[in-house]
């Protein structure tokens, strides 16, 4: 049982590291601000989930786990809020996204 938890947690940690790295590469490669934000959101959402998930498995049922879970919840609450604020601030300042093709709002009523 111990080794199974160990293996799963290492798997989570390494895949978390991989996704974080991909997000960093994406933030460099993407052509403009809004597409870069998509790459950054890979590091901001799946990265913390996997890395902190792996650490929680390592810690077991302790106070450390509760603190880690609190950090995870906090990151997942604030991350989208910060990117939201960033996107709307960029939009308000007249930063136009380069669109491939304007899609008409099909869902708009």
């Amino acid at each position: 049982m111990e080794t199974v938890i160990d293996i799963v947690s290492w798997l989570l940690l390494t895949s978390g590291g991989f996704f974080v790295l991909v997000g960093g590469v994406g933030a460099l490669r993407m052509p403009n601000l809004y597409t870069r934000m998509h790459a950054a959101s890979v590091t901001d959402s799946i990265g913390p989930i996997l890395v902190i998930g792996g650490l929680i498995l390592q810690a077991g049922m302790t106070l450390v786990s509760i603190k880690l879970a609190a950090i995870l919840v906090f990151l997942l609450l604030t991350g989208p809020t910060a990117s939201n604020a960033l996107a709307s601030a960029a939009m308000l300042s007249g930063h136009r996204p380069g669109l491939a093709q304007k899609m008409s709002a099909e869902d708009e009523s």
């Binding site: 940690l13 974080v20 997000g23 960093g24 933030a27 601000l33 870069r36 934000m37 950054a40 590091t43 901001d44 990265g47 913390p48 890395v51 902190i52 650490l55 390592q58 810690a59 450390v64 880690l68 950090i71 990151l75 991350g79 910060a82 990117s83 960033l86 601030a89 960029a90 300042s93 930063h95």
Partner: peptide
Amino acid sequence: YDRVLAVNMMGTKTVLLLSVITF
């Protein structure tokens, strides 16, 4: 805004790095 985005990314990574260093 690109700079703010990068700084925000670095902040998240710092939090994760501190958690990993803890262990």
